[in-house]
Structures are given as C-alpha cells and as structure tokens.
Design a protein around this nucleic acid. Structure first.
Lengths: 376, 376
DNA sequence: CGATAACATGAATCAGTGG
DNA sequence: TCCACTGATTCATGTTATC
C-alpha cells in the first residue's frame, strides 16, 4: 500500500520530503499550496473535462458549482471552469521546478480553455500530443465524427524554457530510428488493467492506460524524478512512476479512489536499474576538446586535415587551432569559414589521412571517450 | 478566372447575390460586415496561427528553413490575437445560417485560444478533428516531438445546434463501412498541386491540401451550398467547392493571392452529379515501432532476446532500446553492432523464447499489424 | 533514355555551457 | 544578463542532375 497523507498532517510540517511517494488527501489547490516551491520535476494532470455532462465542479474555495441543467447559463459555467483551471495551474506552476515540464490531458470540451489559460500563465507550449484510440466509443446517433482521440498539452514552466528533460534519443531508438511524432496510438484502458470494485463496476470513470502514461514518463523524466499528479484518481501516474523508477506525489479528494490507488501502487514491482537505463545520444557525452587529441598524440601539429571530398584542407597548429588560406580558428569556425557557412561541426567535417582512407576526427574523439569511460 | 469584387463595390449594393462565387478584396471583418445576415451555409477559416519564432532555423545540413514570417502572422501579444480572433469569429457568426457549421484550422500556437473564444461566443463544438500529416517537417534540433498534425474545430452556430448538415452515411460508406473517425491522414500540399509563381517559389506559405478540404466539404455541406472562407489565401476552398458543385465566397487582402486563386479556380472543372457521391481517403501501411510491442505487453523490460543461433543476446530496456555488452541502441543498431555489420534488420534478427522455441520478434509485429489494419 | 544519385523543402513558437 | 563558443541535429516526397 502506498502511503496516504491527510492534508492536515502535511500542513503540520511533518518534515520535508515526507510527501514523496504518497497520496495527499484533500482539495487540489489547498494541497498544492502546502508543497514547497520548485519541488517537482514533472506534472501530469487529468483535470475534470467539462461542466456540460453534469460532473461536479468545485471552485477554489471548495464550494460546489451548481449542477448543469438545461437552463444553465453557459458563460457563467465557462467562467467558473476557467477560474478553477487558472487556480490549479497557477498552484502547479509554483511547485514545478524551472526546468520542469507539465502534461495536461483533455478533450475538446475543456482542452481549449486549458491551453489558452496555460499560455496566459506563461507556460511555454512544447507540443500538443494526440492520443489516438484504437478502440474508441462509437458515435451512437450518427450526428458527428467518432470522437477517437484525446489531446495532451506538453509545456515547460517558462517562456523559451530551456533545460527540460526530453529523452529524444531513446524515443527515436525505440521507434525504428525515426523521431517520435505528435500522434500516438494506444488502446483505451480495459481488461485486466481496468480497476474494478467488488461489484464488478469500474472504480474510476476515466482511468488512463498505463502504456500512455509510460510513454509520457519515459519521454520527459529521468529515473529518480518526482512526478506530481494533482488529480490522482485511480493512481495510474503513481503505478507507472513506481514501476519505472520514478517518484510520485498524488492529490485526491475521494477516499474510494485513494483506497484503490494505494492498493494498486503497493502491488507494483519496480523495474531493475539495467532495464531503466535511458539511452542517451552525443549531447549527454562528456566534452572532449580538440586540443586533447593533440595532447594524446592522436594528431600532431603540422598535420593536414581535409573535408571528406578533399575540397578544403587545413593545417593543425600547436595551440589546437587550424589554419587555412590565411585564416585560423577552432575546428568549427574554420570549417564554417572555408565553406562560407555560418556554422559547422568541425568534428564531423574535418578528416585525417589513414593509409589511403580519410577518417573523421570524431573517430579519435570516440577513442578518448572510451578511455575516459574506463577511468570513471 | 473567378470574379474579384473590391469591397467598395460590394458596399455600393450592386445587388444581392452578386458576391456568390467571387473573391472579395478587403479586410476580413469589414468585408464580412458587408454581407447579409444568415447568408452562408458553411464557413472554413484558416486564420493566422500567430507563430512566435525566434531566430533563423537551420537544418542539420545547414540549409535555411523557409519560415512563415509574413506580416499577416505578426501580433503584438496574445491579447491582440484574441481581439482579432473574437472580431472575425463574431462577424462570421452573424453571416452564418442558424443551421450552418464552421470549421477553423490551427496549430497548438493558436488553436486553444480560438477554441476557447468560439465557446465564449456560443458556438457549439461538435468535434475537434486531427489532420495527421504523412510527411510533416521533422524537428531538427531534437528537443520536441515531431509536430506531425494540425487541429480543426468543427462547430455549429448555436448551442445544442440542430439541423446542421452531416453526411454520416456517405462518410461511413466511403470508409469501409465504419464511421469516420476524428483523426484524418493526409499528405501536406506539395508537388503539382502546390501553386508556384514564375520564380518557381510557392505562392502562399500555408496552402492546404485539396483532399483535406474535400473531406470537410463532403462531410458538412450539400451540393449548391455557399461556403465562406474569410482567409481565402491561395483559394483551396474555392477550388474544391467549385469542383464539388458547391458555391464559395472568399475574402482576401493580398492582391497576389487573389490573382493566383482566381486563375486557379477558373481552371477547375466541376464534377458531374454522378461523381459527387463518394470519395475515400488514402490509407497507409501502419508502422509498428519496437516500443509498441512493449507498450502492448507482448515483450517486457528485462526480457532477453537472442539471434536464432543463440550466438548473441540482449536485454530489453524500458525505454524501448536493447542493451548488450555495454552497448545499447535500437533493435537495428544493436543487431548490427553485435555482428560487426553496418546494418541489420532487428525485426528478423532478434528472437524471443516461446516454450523451447525461438520466434522472431517480427511475429509479434504481425500480431499488432493485424489489430491496426482496421485503423490506418 | 533509363536508372540512380543528389538536391530541395514543408505553418517551426527547435541548444547548452561558461565567462 | 549578455555574449562567445562549442557542436548537435531531419523525414517524406518531389525535382533536378548525373551516369
């Protein structure tokens, strides 16, 4: 069983960190306000979808918005939903680390309002992701297209946000070596994965599939990260986070959901470290300066480098710069200059002679990196 | 050549109906105000997306991406964009028949604001439709998911709108007798369909594909209906409307676009009545990524794969890559690596244990494909 | 002339670090 | 906060050039 933390206990300052991997029982905004600034790495939110289907909606002060009926005033309802949305998003934003990202899932009933408010609050939209359902419910009346998808918004905390986690290389490698697109195909949650009560009825009306959650987590978090879910429900976020070696914090009001989620998460076995290692690309590798190749004796001052088609050549100088045609500079600057470009990756542009063949100097950097790896 | 109508002439009341099948030259809202109440059956709007681009973007080969940096896409703030959006949507609403519907296309940059404002103005959202692009531009920096879709909102004029046109049966018949879903697959507009000037450059930066427009028109209008496009651009709406036996009204400010659209529409041959029945969308062979097998539970992280002669083995990681001997990568790259080859088809190389036998993981892909064949 | 390679391009909010 | 510098990064499709 995952720990359950009444909000009152949390507020009594039981100590920092005690809320990791627990479900906070209480109102979403109130519970968020009890968490420290910049304390979570990622947020996944599955807020109430709309007012028009009769779901209960609470204002930030926990008062109940009047139930929707045929006479309801549409503007007042949208306004109430906007106030609610702004409140929880703002509270989430404070809790999120500056390098963190947030996911919000919704349908056409609410996602446009959510997205616009996110922009108003200075979240910086990175992608909208379409979850295409393999087995959506049909449209029974034949008056619309079958509503076969939901939309997720992925955003960083700040405009022009930098430094967020995106495991690009792992996603690409797992996707037949082409980059992952913004349209994802998954079945809806059903069968054995769907939590059911003793009466055989589903515990939660909108339980999300673990496969969807797993891709979200694998894409935008690292092992050990803390993932917050302010509308925890049946606890899919917690279950998948635990399985994938991440930490979670859930917020939920309903005791029935908390009970089901707690038991569910308790039964999850985390994967081992080897299975959880995330594939990284060159960006994550240690930097090796060009000078290091000279110091290691792999290249020598005076030696000539050229591009792969031998159209340009340059001479290595003892200070670790290249010289050609009266110009000199780093491998990158000079590579750009001789080609008349703004930028150039000198590691892949410049080649050295080995026998009759040309090899990129990047091969030599790989040798250095291999040696470095043995040391660490 | 389609008729071009300066807004001043229209205001001089040349007579009702004279604006049918013509392009009104002028500002969008001003032109709309010159049209009568409840005079069009459907609206298709492709407003500026309000892209907020930073500096220049280069492809990995250093070529420059031709960005949409036109003046008409520049707005000072979200607030300015909202004011603009509210104005043209309100003007559209007056012109639309009570039984009419409106389509608006956009991307994550603007569609959330547009959708929220549509709801605020009492449009009643019927569906959001995802246009999945077969050939989207990649993400060059590897910092996001490939932005592979755009979103269309389809709405009726009034809340609980009734009596709008939706050709449910025709769509279903054209879709292998299953109801049309909310995710559509089409290529972007290129090749011979893409309008080009004498300099060989594209006339309009965001010309929409005719196939997309055709499905919109076939789904939500009847022959003889009047379709308004307040951001006419290169005139795709007019060209497809004419071909499909519908009438159009376009509004456009730029003379260059008007000239191109007018000539384009003039060259269109309307289809005969018999051909106006059914048209199908293009289907594509579903791509199945290795990750899909894990997400579907057919393979599990930690499980060991080997080649058919058990000379090499590798462990499946949660991120959808394989690991062996300290190396890691996609099923293809690692298969190549362990064999010392340049390339390898991981689908046929790697096998999993089933009882005492080894079966290629390609067998599992076949299972997924069978399930997906219905979707494409 | 045919096959193949090379090049071009599409609604894009597209980097991270250290001084 | 700004600036300089390193150096990582693309998929599908259509068109043109080359052999």
């Amino acid at each position: 069983m995952a720990a359950v933390l009444p909000l009152a206990d949390l507020k009594r300052q039981v100590g920092p960190g005690n809320w990791i991997n627990s479900i906070i029982k209480g109102d979403c905004v109130a519970a968020l306000e009890a968490l420290p600034d910049h304390s979570v790495d990622a947020i996944f939110a599955d807020p109430p979808y709309n007012l028009q289907l009769g779901g209960a909606l609470h204002r930030p002060d926990q008062s109940l918005v009047d139930a929707v009926d045929d006479d309801w005033d549409q503007f007042a309802s949208f306004e109430a939903y906007d106030i609610f949305t702004r409140a929880w998003l703002l509270a989430c934003r404070r809790v999120l680390k500056p390098t963190g990202t947030i996911w919000v899932i919704g349908s056409y009933h609410n996602i446009f309002r959510v997205g616009a408010i996110m922009q108003d609050l200075n979240f910086w939209l990175l992608n909208d992701i379409v979850w295409r359902k393999t087995n959506p419910m049909p449209n029974f009346k034949g008056r619309r297209f079958q509503n076969a998808h939901e939309t997720m918004i992925w955003a960083s905390r700040d405009a022009k946000g930098k430094g967020y986690t995106f495991n690009y290389d792992a996603l690409k490698a797992s996707n037949d070596d082409v980059q992952m697109r913004s349209d994802w195909l998954f079945p809806i949650c059903s069968g054995g994965e769907r939590l059911k009560g003793e009466d055989g009825k589903k515990v939660h009306p909108t339980q999300k599939p673990e496969a969807l959650m797993a891709r979200v987590i694998m894409a935008s978090t690292r092992p050990g990260d803390v993932i917050l879910d302010p509308f925890f429900g049946s606890g899919t976020t917690g279950a998948v986070a635990k399985r994938l070696g991440r930490n979670f914090v859930g917020i939920e009001r309903e005791q029935d959901y908390i009970d089901a989620a707690s038991a569910r998460i308790g039964a999850v076995e985390p994967l081992g470290k080897a299975e959880l290692t995330v594939m990284t690309g060159k960006k994550a590798e240690p930097r090796v300066a060009f000078n290091t190749l000279i110091e290691a004796g792999l290249l020598k001052p005076g030696q000539v480098l050229s591009d792969v088609k031998r159209r340009h050549s340059a001479i290595i100088r003892a200070d670790g710069t290249l010289a050609a045609n009266g110009d000199a500079g780093s491998i990158h600057r000079l590579g750009a200059k001789v080609q008349g470009l703004d930028a150039c990756n000198g590691w892949t542009f410049w080649h050295f002679q080995e026998g009759e063949a040309l090899r990129p100097i990047d091969d030599l950097r790989a040798i250095i990196r291999t040696d470095l790896a043995k040391l660490s």
